[in-house]
Design a protein around this nucleic acid. Structure first.
Lengths: 159, 159
DNA sequence: GTATTTGCAAAAGCTTTGCTGCAAC
DNA sequence: GTTGCAGCAAAGCTTTTGCAAATAC
């Protein structure tokens, strides 16, 4: 249930004034259909407002991060060291990165929040951010590999 | 239960031959008492073998990572974008990074491996690496903050 | 003698910063 | 008039790479 530019509303509600450039950036993040890194975000947002500068991208990201409105992801450094961003959600979820095809799978489970609770309680730790990332092979890539092994007449580990 | 230079033994068992420089690097990782980044590792390892070069550090890290013998951590980017390394362990554990005092707390719980199992099963995903990092405030920093608020005669959220 | 690995230095990739000037109240 | 942001370009930090020389078998 994504309201149209929920982030802008939240910022407005906090009394934070934004320039047109920042508004363009923020709606771009909000409406993105993939995880964006700073460079892609800049490129996309410039379609809305060509004046946007790289420095403004990083400064706006910093702002939203500090307000806890977006989360920063590494996505297992699948494509170098850049960071990716997504709008923070109420319930925790995690990211599976496939080393084979670079696909990113999002997965949510109640166990995630239960674990979060356990971590906080047992360590008396006040959690602000929790990031869980997994790397490996997705089901399609596992199947591909097994098909390949089979065609090579090599033993298939699954029998 | 850390055997003396377990990593070297494992590599030897795999028939992987190592130069003196790499051996010095690897024992440094093995015997480290904190999480090392590439630069600290270089500095420390040079006390054992001054010939070691930065490139060799990165190339050795790459090797150990690919063999699954060390894990790469970000530690919530508490000190910039560098990576930290630790010897892989059988059972999963996670890292709590305190934004207040930069302390890193390690925490292990069976729930971690149960969650890992659930992720693998429900997504039919073959997990190679799983990294869980948490950022927030440790108990000491929470106490410090509450003491401060109390001295300022401000209301204490805990009553 | 061939293959691998080293050291060095330079490049690359992403992010941050200093500064000048513009814009908003 | 002050205050704060934007844009620009340069610097910063970490990591990677090309290549010639050195090393190991």
């Amino acid at each position: 249930m994504l309201l149209r530019c929920e982030l802008l509303k939240q910022l407005e509600a906090k009394g934070i004034r934004l320039t047109a450039q920042r508004r363009a950036l923020i709606s771009t993040i909000q409406e993105a259909t993939t995880h964006l890194d700073a460079a892609s975000l800049l490129k996309l947002a410039r379609e809305r407002d060509p004046r946007i500068n790289r420095a403004t991208v990083y400064r706006t990201i910093e702002l939203l991060k500090n307000l806890g409105m977006i989360d920063e992801l590494d996505l297992m450094h699948l494509h170098g060291e850049k960071h990716y961003y997504e709008v923070s959600t109420q319930e925790g979820h995690l990211h599976l990165a496939c080393f084979g095809c670079a696909k990113i799978i999002e997965f949510a489970t109640p166990a995630f929040d239960r674990l979060k609770q356990e971590i906080a309680t047992k360590n008396n730790f006040e959690i602000q951010v929790m990031r869980l990332e997994v790397g490996g092979n997705c089901s399609a890539c596992i199947a591909k590999r097994e098909k390949y092994l089979h065609e090579q007449h090599k033993p298939c580990p699954c029998g």
